[in-house]
């Protein structure tokens, strides 16, 4: 394989991985936009979604039905924790909400393992040989994951930008008080947003499950890349989150051969670090007084 082909393959892998990270970052960013904290439970929403999808797919025999069930269940889970925990912490410091989200993460994951155990699951998808296009190796599952990822991102952006609900969501994310005073039913929009966040996480979980395996730590492992992407994207812009996700995915795959595949995750950490040193307040951090 020539080095050109090698790079092309890594780029392709990176883009597929990046799409998944983008979904995680999108869920993190949307929470940050409406509630101003970094939701560390995002990863475990993802894991939950993957498990439900797997369970429902096995039960009904249809992956599509499982997918829908996973999205619905995770959306409800997300709204449940909003109603029980995060809604009550809205007026309090971000640190409290962050700590609470760690609690939510642990609670979801280990309540789940009580029933599922720690053995990994895989989706029953036919194993197909990779397509070879001029030395470019394409895994059909990767293509499916990429198509599904792009389609879901497209749907989310269409929802945010071309529907009345989406306009209201963006208004709420921008400024809750202003949105309320201009007659938007912010409570309903908040619920819709948390539903959306859960659904996005479930999509990400299912895609990760399709690409590799479903296991209890899968979401937690994606949290750091997700945070890294959200930070790169400025923590406030959905588009930024997606671009950040792709950048993280690409850097992971391109750096992996040099730092070792086992240190792939560390690359996210270094990216966060380098970026925050350059821009301590994030991309959209304003010039503030010396504290």
């Amino acid at each position: 394989m020539s080095s050109g082909q090698w790079i092309a393959n890594q780029v392709l892998n990176g883009l597929v991985e990046g799409l998944v990270v983008a979904l995680v970052a999108l869920a993190i960013t949307l929470v940050y936009a409406i509630a101003r904290f970094s939701n560390a439970a995002t990863g475990d929403y993802l894991t939950f979604g993957a498990y439900v999808t797997k369970g429902a797919a096995t039960w009904t025999g249809s992956l599509a039905a499982g997918f829908v069930a996973g999205m619905v269940a995770t959306a409800l889970l997300s709204v449940f924790f909003y109603g029980w925990v995060f809604r009550r912490l809205l007026q309090r410091s971000h640190v409290i909400a962050l700590v609470a989200s760690i609690g939510v993460a642990f609670f979801i994951r280990h309540t789940m393992t009580l029933f599922t155990g720690h053995e990994p699951f895989v989706f029953d998808v036919p194993i197909v040989r990779a397509w070879n296009i001029n030395g470019l190796l394409l895994q059909p599952t990767d293509v499916a994951v990429a198509v599904a990822g792009v389609a879901s991102l497209g749907l989310v952006f269409a929802l945010l930008h071309f529907t009345a609900l989406g306009r209201h969501m963006r208004a709420v994310a921008d400024n809750v008080d202003l949105a309320r005073s201009s007659g938007i039913d912010t409570d309903r929009v908040m619920i819709a947003l948390w539903l959306l966040i859960g659904a996005i996480a479930a999509i990400a979980g299912t895609l990760v499950g399709l690409k590799s395996v479903i296991h209890p730590e899968m979401g937690w492992d994606l949290l750091l890349p997700g945070f890294a992407a959200a930070i790169l994207g400025g923590f406030a812009s959905p588009i930024g989150a997606v671009v950040g996700g792709l950048v993280i995915g690409l850097t992971h795959e391109l750096a992996a051969p040099f730092v070792g595949y086992s240190y792939k995750l560390a690359v996210s950490f270094l990216i966060i670090l380098a970026f925050l040193l350059w821009r301590p307040g994030g991309l959209f951090g304003r010039v503030e007084e010396v504290r």
Binding site: V85, L89, A100, V104, F107, R109, L114
Partner: peptide, 19 residues
């Protein structure tokens, strides 16, 4: 699993009821 889920639950309860 129960213990770790309890860690989570207690963290949630602590933030809600012991601010």
């Amino acid at each position: 699993s129960v213990r770790l889920a309890a860690v989570g639950l207690l963290l949630i309860l602590a933030t809600l009821y012991r601010p």
